[in-house]
Amino acid sequence: MQLIATILAAAVLLIHVYIVLLETVLFRSRGARVFGLSAEQVEVLAPAMSNQGCYNGFLAAALAVGFLHPVPATGTAFMVFGLACVAIAGVWGAVTVQKRILFVQTVPALLALGAMALAR
């Protein structure tokens, strides 16, 4: 079960690295297409999306520290914190922006947390 938890957590990390890129450096090109925005919307939303991308970067950073920290207990704590934050942010995004966010963010994070709990 530990291997499954690791794979799921890595998937959540990779999803968030992609989200960070979409919301920051790729927002005006690929991000606009993924989010289905017009050119006018892109110009208005670009600063806010860049800021949102920064916050998603913090989520990815917490998960990365979870993988890289030399003390396993500390790494696990970062991983649980990061996954819990991703799950909560996904719920909020689903309520306020688009229901699809629940399946892209929250479900994978909860599956990873569940697998981690079962691995203990």
Results as ranks from 00 to 15, higher is better:
Leu37Ser: 06
Gln105Glu: 13
Tyr55Ile: 12
Leu21Val: 05
Thr6Gln: 14
Val80Tyr: 10
Arg33Gly: 00
Leu21His: 06
Ser29Ile: 03
Phe67His: 10
Phe27Ser: 03
Gly66Gln: 11
Val20Ile: 10
Val42Gly: 02
Tyr55Ser: 08
Gly82Arg: 09
Phe67Val: 04
Ile101Lys: 04
Leu21Pro: 02
Arg100Trp: 04
Leu110Arg: 01
Ala84His: 01
Leu118Ile: 07
Val91Glu: 07
Phe27Thr: 01
Gln2Glu: 11
Gly90Glu: 00
Leu45Ser: 11
Ala61Met: 10
Ala73Leu: 12
Lys99Arg: 14
Ile7Glu: 11
Gly36Pro: 00
Ile101Ala: 08
Val12Glu: 01
Ile88Lys: 04
Ile101Gln: 10
Gly53Thr: 05
Phe58Met: 12
Gly31Pro: 13
Ala10Leu: 15
Ala112Trp: 11
Ile88Tyr: 06
Cys85Trp: 11
Leu111Ala: 15
Glu40Tyr: 02
Ile7Met: 15
Thr76Trp: 04
Leu111Thr: 05
Leu118Asn: 02
Ala60Thr: 01
Ala62Ser: 10
Cys85Tyr: 09
Ile88Ser: 02
Val34Glu: 15
Phe27Lys: 01
Ser50Cys: 07
Val34Trp: 11
Val104Ala: 12
Ala46Leu: 13
Val86Gln: 12
Val65Asp: 03
Thr6Tyr: 12
Gln52Val: 11
Ile15Ala: 12
Ala115Ile: 07
Val107Cys: 13
Ile101Glu: 08
Gly90Cys: 02
Thr6Val: 14
Thr106Phe: 09
Leu37Asp: 06
Thr74His: 11
Pro108Ala: 04
Cys54Asp: 01
Lys99Val: 15
Leu26Ala: 14
Phe27Cys: 01
Cys54Gln: 09
Gly53His: 00
Phe81Thr: 11
Val95Gly: 09
Val42Glu: 10
Arg100Asp: 05
Pro47Ser: 07
Met79Glu: 12
Leu59Val: 12
Phe78Val: 08
Ala48Leu: 14
Val107Met: 15
Leu26Phe: 15
Val25Met: 12
Ala10Tyr: 14
Ala84Arg: 00
Pro70Gly: 02
Leu26Gly: 00
Trp92Val: 10
Val42Met: 11
Leu59Lys: 10
Val44Ile: 13
Glu23Lys: 03
Leu102Ala: 08
Gly53Arg: 01
Leu22Gln: 01
Val91Phe: 15
Gly66Lys: 03
Lys99Glu: 09
Ala109Thr: 03
Ala46Lys: 13
His16Asp: 01
Ala46Asn: 08
Leu113Val: 07
